[in-house]
Design a protein around this nucleic acid. Sequence first.
DNA 1: AGAGCTTATCGAATCGATTCGATAAACTGA
DNA 2: TCAGTTTATCGAATCGATTCGATAAGCTCT
Lengths: 350, 350
Amino acid sequence: MSERRPGIADVARAAGVSASTASVVFSGKAPVSQATRGRVLSAAAELGYTGPDPRAASLRRGRSGIVGVLFMEPLRTAFLDPVKTAMMDGLTEGVAALGAGLLLLHDDATGNGDLLTSAPIDAVVVINSSDAIGEALALLRARGVPIVVIEGDAAAGVPRIGLNDREAQRLAAAHLAQLGHRHVVVLALPPRRDRARDWLDADDEIRFDVTRDRLAGARDLFPDAAAFAVEENSIDEGVRAGRALLSSRERPTAVIAQSDLLAAGVIRAAEDAGLRVPEDVSVTGFDGVRVDGLDGYELTTLVQPAFEKGRAAGAAVARMLAGEEAASITFTCTFREGTTTAPVRIPSVG
Amino acid sequence: MSERRPGIADVARAAGVSASTASVVFSGKAPVSQATRGRVLSAAAELGYTGPDPRAASLRRGRSGIVGVLFMEPLRTAFLDPVKTAMMDGLTEGVAALGAGLLLLHDDATGNGDLLTSAPIDAVVVINSSDAIGEALALLRARGVPIVVIEGDAAAGVPRIGLNDREAQRLAAAHLAQLGHRHVVVLALPPRRDRARDWLDADDEIRFDVTRDRLAGARDLFPDAAAFAVEENSIDEGVRAGRALLSSRERPTAVIAQSDLLAAGVIRAAEDAGLRVPEDVSVTGFDGVRVDGLDGYELTTLVQPAFEKGRAAGAAVARMLAGEEAASITFTCTFREGTTTAPVRIPSVG
DNA sequence: AGAGCTTATCGAATCGATTCGATAAACTGA
DNA sequence: TCAGTTTATCGAATCGATTCGATAAGCTCT
């Protein structure tokens, strides 16, 4: 009664061929005559053999066909960000070219830490890494697992897929400057983990590259621009921050938001406060993603190739698995003028 | 020069013990004396051995520690839905209890189809399955891979994690009826894949359980309520649909949206049309998730235990892997009255 | 001191396929 | 017809750990 699943050996025996031949029928790695292929296939059908066991194959091959994606945050918040999901789509496509799939990993809480050691992964892509990831990275390197980082501080020798954040943000700032804006405020992404929503001081430590670089780009044109940092990248956070920014006595004429979600939030906050965008206040975003719930505005923003970034990461993984050296890549954002920026109005008070 | 990674056999040799003992040191499946454990561990450190190869372990164990999550849509759109991400979080936790991780699978496009056959997965959780998934399911069953379905048409014998959609939706409808509403319209989720945004005819085929059951619940109280189906579950779709619904000559006094996102969209559309919620039009949602960008309203909705659903799916997987029978589970939604529903106003026209 | 346990350790079998080199058969061209 | 290729097939080694039954040593209790 013990219904042990048939193995390739059983199929081979039933078909009257060697196991090696049967194997080749399934993998296609060597020529097989039509006749034997037929016999093997029908023997397999007869026995209910559904193809080689991936576990055994991956042991022999030394490859599991699985690439880990390591997040620094719970999935809930990671996937709230359309940029990340677009990246994931790109990554999916990138590793699909390898015949691989994506295993979700996150670097926090529930002893999932050991998935890093116990999961059969061929490589890992780290999303938005911060320094907190140190140990995890070390572990993986010791295991000899190839690593690629998207947007983050990579350890030396780790290929990094990045963005020209600073130059890009500078473009938006220049656009505002050209429209006559002088009083500009930056709405920044979190500078580091678990940092409360508040203004950024000069001595505030900024651990996330993205936040730092975009801020630098804005200050290239507005060196004295104040910056307010949110707690997470979401529309609601943008709304809350927007209320703070727009209600201050010296209301800025323009807000440089470091993401489209934040920009959308600012716009909502402005509407709620009875301000018109862009007549009363100009707003720029960053990312160029479709923001659900911003229907009606065309955001002035920097379009980043999120999908491409993911795909490039996949390609880098492929290269590393092939034993080649994978270089870091810096993608370029393009400036897109929308309807949320306009020339500054002549101040009513001299 | 050939830097072959050391195996447990090498470590054992260096430590002067048998491979079996060394194995046990790492797995902890049998008692080992402090002395030998120490020798093995230091030998491992010396050789740079980072623990057993998961590929080999999974062959021997017959378990890879990986559970597939099968989506019917690209991640981009799947994760737009906060319910799905919450479910994913729950699922993550559920399978973490098993020491397993999640492998992303999606049933579309790029020949990823063969991940289903070639990936070393111990089980699969299908999200929101429709009939389109037939072949995939058959494939998995043939392979003997345990399957659990969340919200969808399961094949016979497949445990299903569901919701009391109909009863729940009926509660919201009853609430509106009690407030005096008589002219109610249902804003429905897509009835099937690739169906254009439009009114639902009586003979429209509804392939998604969720859409069908919630609609039935609404019609239990409003048998003649018209239903308008969107193309995808998003705020923007809600806005578009909302425009259509609210501008019709016979404007309804209440809208029963089948999701919170759609409800949020309707509210936005109402605002844009100069209507007040709930004074001019009442709106109910479904899901009870945090909707980014709906700050200011407390949606009247049905709170579903999305996280719990995910976790239950994980638990069901665990049970099936343990060889037990996993029963289907139907979760219950709770009605939550917010500020988006109010008594119907006396019609100005008799 | 010897029966009965518990604790450590080991050897050998096993998980299920893949792959490489060898061999044989079939075909090519001069 | 014979040397030289292709084309098919096979045997055996290998991937790297886990696990089970056996064995031996160390304890406890009477």
